[in-house]
Amino acid sequence: MSRHRPPSAADGSTETQQPDYESLELPTKPPSEYSWRERRKELLQLVKQAGHPDALNQTELAERYGVSQQQISKDLDRLAEYASDTLGQRRDLVSEAVFHRAMEGLMEQEEYRKAARTVADWNEWLDHRVEIAELRDRLDRVEDLLEEDGHV
């Protein structure tokens, strides 16, 4: 069986059904009235601002949204899956948050040359991640073929 496949959706496909939190608009209502999608959108923004999910106080966030701390923890887990689905690895939520925070800091300090280099480094890193994912997919296909032929 392949080891590197993305998690299956409820319908058995390998496509996930998570919304694109980046493209959602936050409403002008109290956070305690946010839907789970809106809450996760804002949580994603907060993670990016803080630079790491662990920098957030889950108890305070639970009070803000009128949900349990366990729900906030689950929301952060789903956001990590979202980052994994869009970038390739679970730890990428942290990487993306640090990148955005670094870019904000460089731009605020008018360090445009350093910001441009940081973007180039980020893009190189993303390209590398894509290459690894493609290699894993190829390896999975080879393993599947070997299994079908009874060689594994």
Score class of each variant (00 low, 15 high):
Arg101Phe: 15
Met107Leu: 14
Glu42Asn: 03
Leu43Gly: 10
His52Val: 04
Gly88Ala: 05
Glu81Leu: 09
Gly51Lys: 06
Ala80Tyr: 02
Ala102Trp: 13
Glu63Pro: 00
Leu106Phe: 06
Ala116Phe: 11
Leu44Gln: 07
Ala50His: 08
Gln45Gly: 13
Gln69Val: 06
Tyr82Gly: 04
Gly88His: 02
Gln69Arg: 14
Tyr34Arg: 07
Leu24His: 08
Leu46Ile: 01
Glu96Gly: 06
Val47Lys: 04
Gly105Lys: 08
Phe99Asp: 04
Lys114Asp: 07
Glu60Cys: 09
Asn57Gln: 15
Glu38Val: 14
Pro30Ser: 04
Tyr112Gln: 06
Lys41Ala: 09
Leu93Phe: 15
Arg64Ile: 03
Leu46Glu: 05
Pro53Val: 09
Asp54Cys: 03
Leu46Trp: 08
Tyr65Ile: 03
Arg101Gln: 15
Leu46Lys: 12
Arg101Ala: 08
Leu43Trp: 05
Pro27His: 07
Glu33Ile: 06
Leu46Tyr: 06
Gln49Glu: 09
Met107Phe: 06
Glu60Ile: 10
Glu38Trp: 11
Arg39Cys: 14
Ser95Gly: 01
Ala55His: 13
Glu25Gln: 10
Glu42Ile: 00
Leu26Met: 00
Pro27Ala: 03
Tyr65Lys: 03
Ile72Met: 02
Ile72Leu: 01
Gly66Leu: 06
Thr28Tyr: 04
His52Arg: 12
Asp77Phe: 13
Lys74Thr: 11
Ser35Lys: 04
Arg78Val: 12
Thr86Val: 12
Gln71His: 04
Met103His: 07
Thr86Trp: 10
Gln70Ser: 14
Leu76Pro: 04
His100Leu: 14
Val98Leu: 10
Gln109Cys: 00
Gln71Lys: 07
Lys29Val: 15
Leu106Trp: 02
Trp36Thr: 15
Ser73Glu: 01
Arg39Phe: 09
Ala115Leu: 04
Lys114Thr: 03
Gln58Met: 10
Ser73Tyr: 06
Glu25Tyr: 12
Glu110Met: 12
Tyr34Ser: 11
Gln58Lys: 14
Thr118Arg: 05
Met107Gly: 04
Ala116Ser: 13
Glu81Tyr: 13
Glu33Gln: 14
Lys41Trp: 07
Gly88Asp: 00
Ser32Lys: 08
Gln70His: 03
Gln109Val: 00
Val47Asp: 00
Leu46Gln: 12
Glu96Ser: 10
Lys41Gly: 09
Val98Arg: 11
Ala115Lys: 04
Phe99Gln: 10
Lys48Met: 09
Ser73Lys: 09
Asn57Thr: 12
Val67Ala: 00
Lys29Asn: 08
Leu87Asn: 13
Arg64Pro: 03
Lys29Tyr: 11
Gly66Phe: 04
Asp85Gly: 15
Tyr65Leu: 03
Asn57Ser: 15
